[in-house]
Design a protein around this nucleic acid. Structure first.
Lengths: 237, 237
DNA sequence: TATTTCTTATGATATATGTCAGTCTTTTTT
DNA sequence: AAAAAAGACTGACATATATCATAAGAAATA
């Protein structure tokens, strides 16, 4: 974990255009920029732990982070994956609560930490920005409600198919007919995304492979029949 | 559904002290008050439908409302129950999206409708109020994440026990050793809260009764052994 | 009051999925 | 390169829970 203080000011940051900072006025960008800290993280490192006190927010410059909760049986439920341009940890800050979830690096990452003072000062002096943050929060809530509904009403097979489609959308690189998911997740992590046992994921993946829906290349998954997966996931019904 | 325009100004509303409007300054209370509309709703009526456009927020003065999503198999997943003092529909408004869920009256209710203009004007001219709304939103997100984790990692029995405890907390009236849940829900609705089939709820309830955890009085449920239920719901902790 | 409709309840049955155990493979460490 | 650890995979098995069917009870309607 290495600190690059003063590295790449936000004004010039390439991943800013993907973020909620996208159209922040010059003045506020500078407040943020002067206070941020770019840190490099390796796979497996923890960004924050459930139950601890948030001191600022994180803005992902590169890499992938999983945000998850640890259930009482010890298993991880992955709530979402975050990548370039995503903000992390603002919900705990705005909720004035300790983190309700944990975050771990899944793919080596460069992440800016913005202390809460700088974040809040920008937020409370810039209503449009505050609105955008609130909008993002509301959207996230809707997504989570959808996930809850899927979790209780859909089968594991349907949910796995859906997770694969989503991974394809976010991390897919096209190659002819196929779409390769360019992100390495363990089977256990995929199980954490679906909310099931690791063995079930393994079994269903080989089934999907047998049915020519996907291709397996070690840990890598290649989607061969996106529509087939969509049909399976009950996306339209 | 009857309209009582100008009924009980917010200044004098008894349920305001339970709400996010609790310490709004006089001036803003009046903006809200002058624009609101108190409407009486009967059980079964719909407040809003998933997919439609929000035009304002709802503030519950009395009664109970269920907020739910309809899954692709036609079953309802109840996301939460709302009562006196609760706000409804602000998430869709702030997210600038159509309603992501529906709301139906579960117990006859009096509900104020506040048009979005009045709500927004208060929100954007009163940062502390905006903060409180955002705080509520963040909290809701955390609760939803917890529900998702429970849904994937706990058994139906555990979840039902937990739902009963929560219903006791929110709608319980004490009576000696026991706690009567003073809210009439169909078994189907309880199933919707737990995220399971109606028959499973019925079966588990009679099991809980046999184990002397609860008492059944028609649709009404009386909690006899709260600690027993808690133990059941939180097996590992 | 009779009739219809909805809800609760119980039984029989099927099955998806979790758990446990063991092997093989890949990755990491020494 | 060898040893150790972690992860992927497969099989056997148990079971919680969904589904279907049917009946009794309650509530709504005529």
């Amino acid at each position: 974990m290495s600190v690059h203080s003063g590295n790449t000011p936000c004004e010039l940051c390439a991943s800013r255009k993907f973020s909620l900072f996208a159209d922040l006025p010059e003045q506020h960008i500078c407040t943020i920029s002067d206070n941020k800290n770019l840190i490099s993280h390796r796979k497996g490192q923890i960004l924050f732990y459930e139950g601890t006190k948030p001191l600022g927010i994180f803005c992902i410059n590169s890499g992938v982070v999983k945000v998850y909760k640890t259930a009482s049986n010890g298993k991880e439920q992955i709530l979402h994956l975050s990548k370039k341009g995503d903000f992390l940890g603002y919900s705990a800050l705005l909720g004035e609560e300790n983190y309700s979830n944990s975050a771990m690096i899944v793919e080596d990452a460069k992440i800016c930490f913005i202390p809460k003072e700088a974040f809040f000062s920008t937020l409370f002096n810039n209503t449009p920005f505050f609105k955008r943050i609130t909008k993002a929060l509301s959207h996230e809530l809707g997504v989570m409600e959808e996930k809850l509904t899927d979790a209780t009403q859909k089968s594991i097979r349907e949910r796995l198919a859906f997770v694969l489609i989503q991974l394809g959308n976010s991390y897919g690189v096209e190659g002819g007919e196929n779409q390769k998911i360019d992100l390495i997740l363990s089977r256990e992590e995929i199980a954490g995304m679906v909310g099931t046992a690791t063995e079930s994921v393994i079994r269903l993946l080989s089934e999907f492979k047998k049915d020519n829906l996907i291709e397996l290349e070690g840990k890598r998954i290649i989607i061969k029949d996106r529509r087939g997966l969509a049909r399976l996931s009950d996306f339209y019904a």
